[in-house]
Every structure is written in C-alpha cells, then in structure tokens.
Design a protein around this nucleic acid. Structure first.
Length: 542
RNA sequence: GCGCCCGUAGCUCAGUGGACAGAGCAACGGCCUUCUAAGCCGUCGGCCGGAGGUUCGAAUCCUCCCGGGCGUACCA
C-alpha cells in the first residue's frame, strides 16, 4: 500500500534527524496541488525538535528526494506535500491485478477465531425492519472480519424460554379460542400481531378444541407450537435477506445442560455475587458495571442476564479468541453488566466486544413510526425485502453509521429503485463487464501489461482509490463501521462513471487500450470484492 | 435526576485534529452517429444546534447549555 510505504519512508527520515520520537501521519491529499499524499509531520514534530515547523520541514525534505517521490514541497504552516512518480502508482495497480480476489484479504484463520452473535431476536414474532439493520450489520461485519483473516462463526441466540415465551403461548392460545367464538383477551403485556392469528388457525385445524383451558399441557403445547413456527419464519426472513448463520443456539440447551447453575457457581467462587431481599445479585458496580443487577429472582428463577452470562461462558469455553455481540442501543445496562461478569470471571478484557447500533424508524409520507412487536405495530422485514429487493434493503441498512438513527424512507426506497446508490454501484461493475465482453481475447494477460500509458489525472486517481481498499476494509471491521465500505464503494463508482464518460477504452491505440483494460480489471476486482462483502449481487448485465 | 447516542445544505446523510466543509435526493441548465444515458458535466444551496476552553490548527477533543432518541425492572 502506498500510504504505509510512504509513512515508513517519513519515519526513517525522522529517525535520521536524531530527534525525539514523533507520530508519523500520512493521508491522501484532497487537492491536486497538494500532491498525492501529505504529511503534517513538521507540525506535529516541531515541539519535540524545538524548531519552527517550516524550518523542520526544510531539514526533512532533502532526505525524501530519493525513492518514490518525483517532487516534495513544503506548504502552508508546515505541511509536506508528496508527489509520487507515476511508476509507483502503476505498481500499486499491478499489485491489485496480481492479487485478484485476494486483494484486501488475508488468509482465513490466521488472525484467530471470532464469533459474531447478532439478531438474536426472541422467537415471539417475525423479524421487523428494525431487526433488519442488525442482521445486515452483523452479516457484513462477519464478512469484513473474514476478509481480515479471522475464522468467523455467525451465531443466533434464541431466547426460547422464560416469561416472554409464556406470554406468547397464552396470547396464541387466546387467539385460538377466539376462533371458536369465545371472548378471550390477550394477556397483559402479551402479543397482538396478526401472525398469531394465522398460527392459531393452523393449530385449530390440527387439534380442534382439545385445549379449552390454558392449563399446563396447553401452555406447553402452545409454547412449542409458537416457538417452532416462529423460529422457522425468522430463519426464512433471514434467508431472503441473504443472511446465513453457522449456528442457531437455544437458551433451553443452557438450562438442560446445567450450564446456568454452573455459571452461578463460578461467579460465587469468585465472590461476584451477594444476596439481598431474597434474590441473588451480581456485583457489577464494583467491577465497572453501571449498577448491580439481579441474577436469581426471589422465586428462584434466573433472569435473562444470568442465562446470558452462562451463554458467554459457553462461548469462552468453545475457544473463541474474541466475540462480538451486535446489539441495539437499548441494552446499555445489560452490556455493562456482562462486561462486569467477564471481569469477575477473569476473562481477557478484549474477549467481549459490543457493536451497538441505534434504531430504525420508518418514514412513509409524513408519518414516522417506531415499531413494537408486542403491539403488533411493525413492518415485516420480509415484506420490505420482497418488495424492494435484497440488495436495496442491505445497502440502505448499512449505508449509515450504526450509532446514528436510521430513517428508512419507504417511498424513497421504492421510488428510488431506478436512481439508487445500489444500482449505481452495480452499474459500474456492469459497464466494466460489458467492455470486457466486447474486448474479447485482447483482454488476456493483463498482469504483464505496461501501465506507463496511464497518465491522466483521472486514471492515477482511480488507482490511488483502489490502493486504499485494504485500509477501508480493516477500518470498517475494526471500527464496527461497515458504512465506510459502503461509502467507499459508492465514491469509487462515482469516480469510475466520470472516467467512463471522459475517456474511451476500446478503439484507442493498442498500448493505451491494454493499459486501460488493466485498470478496468483492477476496478472490477475491487467492485466485486466490495459487493461480496456487502452481500449484494454482482451483475454482469443490467 | 443520572448514563449512553445523535444534532452538518430544503430532505436523507458522509466527514471525528489539518490547509477554501462533501455526496445523494430535490430545483434549474447542458450532453446520446462512439465501450449500456440505470450515465456524464454545470448552477443553486451551509455563521457544521449555542456559548466558552485546549491546540500552530476544531465540524472533529474538553466543559456547560439547548433540542431529539434510548436506557435507568426481581422485562428480554
């Protein structure tokens, strides 16, 4: 990569001045007259050197005149502007072409194992548009980390036990009785969605009036019936979005295998719990948590947090080096308590990480609405995906930074279907494919082509953008910020379309044409890799 | 009250220490005998919520204030 090799040259120059250490920063210039790259090293190092920035720059510049630079200038208060020799930029393109689909990726597994847990919505209803954001966020993060060289496991945790499921079962049963003409109310805090009526109908056909009362056998039957059907619905919702999981984990397994009890024992051993008011509490506050929380209620039932701690112990025991939990911003207290529990258990601080995102609101016309599964007020992820397509949903969900609220404008998403960043990016890939189709066999062996004919500012700019791709991938992964890749790809498409409009590839003289075909091959590689990571389709024609 | 997040162009949002603040949409005006016009080019549009502070330099870091979201359960 250009940036890192330039940074190391600057570091060497700095060291040879025999001054106290300084942080070397290099960044792509945002204006042509500032060269290809700029550094603020003289500004940062002035204090350490005891020299005014421009004086310091004057000492540095002569040391830089060898190597990749055609020209080095001092500008403004003490910036160093670096102009690269074209051959150096050409070499960067060559690397893209030679790496092919490995460009921007490391070998799988060399960075260790990583589990990403996401969505993990309770099986109490179909996924909503809100879950869609988390689904895409988690999926793309997983792809990013895979590209970085981690062995990634995508996992979904089903809370298929507990109070919410009991309420769900009772709500379902009430719907079922209503089908027999009885007046039944949905329990306080229960579920009102239409999907329960559909399930109730199926069950009515199956068992007729075998469960007139909500007794223990009925509760068990309706719990199982509801959970198993809704789990399948959720899995299908995700498949339609192109999101796949390596493992579906059930809370009930933790109870059955005694891991919840064992987790409590481990916390007790390490003095992380205490009793108060008949309940057992986690000593979270002393361990960096926001506040102490109940683990075992006074009636003996474990809380969600208790079970989740057991789940995280299980993750650790499975040998993951790191785990990332993708969660909504409403789980703040839970997160700090989990972290506290991990500290009590003595796990490494970097083991558990949270990728937190804000919510999605739906805008339709002038109305903006939050969603609530319980109130039955939501837009199904499936309906949205079926209507506007997987690629568009995925891109919209990922294009905003996670910590910002995402306003999903339904009308825009529908109406924009012909004038949409998604198609804009895919169209760039398509245009390249089209040129290669027309070029035929002349486009072979581009790894060996002489790239010297590439000399327009647009061409050199495109290559520098390609060169940035690996850094974008790692930045997006490490910062839990897939929107950086989405934005990068869109900018690259913009730059390509502009280039396409101003220069021709086919029909120019042979040397130039081959060099431009090589550039297109590099571009196509990066478009393909980006779209792959974003989980979008890669059309050859549109 | 306390904690976390957000506040940038009419709208939706990028930009988190660098040199005149960017894009898309919307509005207006150009460009198809040439590799797909699902495109390109141009114009219009912003005291970066407000006030202080740190810094050679602040949309970006710190403090306070205002506005919005979420949380502050023996819910999940």
């Amino acid at each position: 990569m250009l940036k890192s090799s330039i940074a190391s040259i600057l570091s060497l120059a700095w060291e040879s001045l025999d001054l106290p250490p300084a942080t070397v920063e290099v960044y792509p210039s945002d204006r042509p007259e500032f060269g290809d790259f700029s550094s603020n090293l003289p500004l940062i190092g002035a204090k350490a050197a005891g020299l005014p920035p421009r004086k310091l720059a004057e000492q540095l510049v002569p040391l830089l005149l060898v190597g990749p630079f055609a020209r080095v200038e001092i500008a403004g208060p003490g910036f160093i502007n670096l102009f690269l020799k074209p051959a150096v930029i050409h070499a960067a393109l060559q690397e893209v072409i030679r790496s092919g689909d490995r460009f921007g990726s490391s070998d799988s597994g060399e960075k260790g194992s990583l589990q990403i847990e996401f969505v993990s919505s309770n099986p109490t209803g179909p996924l909503t548009v809100g879950h869609g954001r988390q689904a895409v966020l988690g999926d793309v993060l997983a792809s990013l980390y895979t590209a970085l060289g981690y062995a990634v496991t995508r996992e979904y945790y089903f809370n298929d036990e507990g109070r919410q499921i009991d309420l769900l079962a009772e709500s379902l049963w009430a719907c079922y009785r209503r089908l027999s003409g009885e007046e039944r109310v949905i329990p306080e805090g229960g579920y009102h969605g239409e999907y329960l009526i559909d399930i109730a109908r199926e069950l009515k056909d199956e068992v007729e009036d075998r469960f007139p009362d909500f007794d223990a056998p009925a509760a068990q039957f309706f719990r199982r019936a509801a959970v198993s059907r809704i789990k399948e619905t959720i899995k299908d919702d995700l498949i339609r979005l192109g999101v796949g999981f390596d493992r579906w984990f059930s809370e009930s397994d933790l109870h059955r295998s005694g891991k919840v009890t064992a987790a409590l024992a481990s916390l007790r051993e390490r003095n992380g719990i205490y009793e108060k008011d008949g309940a057992i509490w986690l000593q979270a506050e002393e361990n960096g948590g926001v506040k102490d929380s109940v683990l075992i209620r006074s009636d003996g039932r474990p809380t969600y947090l208790m079970v989740d701690i057991a789940y995280h112990i299980d993750k650790y025991d499975r040998g993951f080096d790191r785990v990332i939990d993708v969660q909504g911003a409403d789980h703040q207290v839970e997160q700090s308590c989990m972290k506290a529990a991990m500290r009590i258990l003595g796990y490494p601080e970097k083991f558990l990480n949270y990728a937190v995102h804000q919510f999605v609101s739906i805008k339709e016309g002038e109305e903006t609405a939050r969603m609530s599964t319980r109130a039955g007020r939501f837009i199904c992820l499936r309906d949205l995906t079926d209507e506007i397509g997987r690629d568009v949903v995925r891109y919209f969900m990922i294009a905003r930074k996670p910590e910002s609220h995402l306003q999903f404008d339904l009308e825009l998403a529908r109406a924009e279907s012909l004038d949409n960043p998604v198609y804009y990016i895919q169209y760039a890939h398509t245009r390249i494919s089209s040129i290669f189709r027309k070029a035929g066999p002349i486009a072979c062996g581009l790894e060996e082509v002489d790239l010297a004919p590439l000399k327009t500012p647009g061409e050199l700019e495109l290559i520098k953008r390609l060169d940035r791709f690996p850094e974008v991938v790692s930045g997006a992964a490490l910062g839990f910020a897939p929107h950086l890749l989405a934005g990068y790809t869109l900018d690259l498409a913009r730059a390509f379309h502009a280039y396409y409009g101003e220069q021709r590839v086919l029909g120019t003289d042979k040397g130039l044409m081959k060099a431009r075909l090589a550039l297109l091959q590099g571009l196509q590689t990066v478009f393909r890799r980006s779209l792959e990571i974003l989980g979008m389709s890669i059309p050859e024609e549109m």
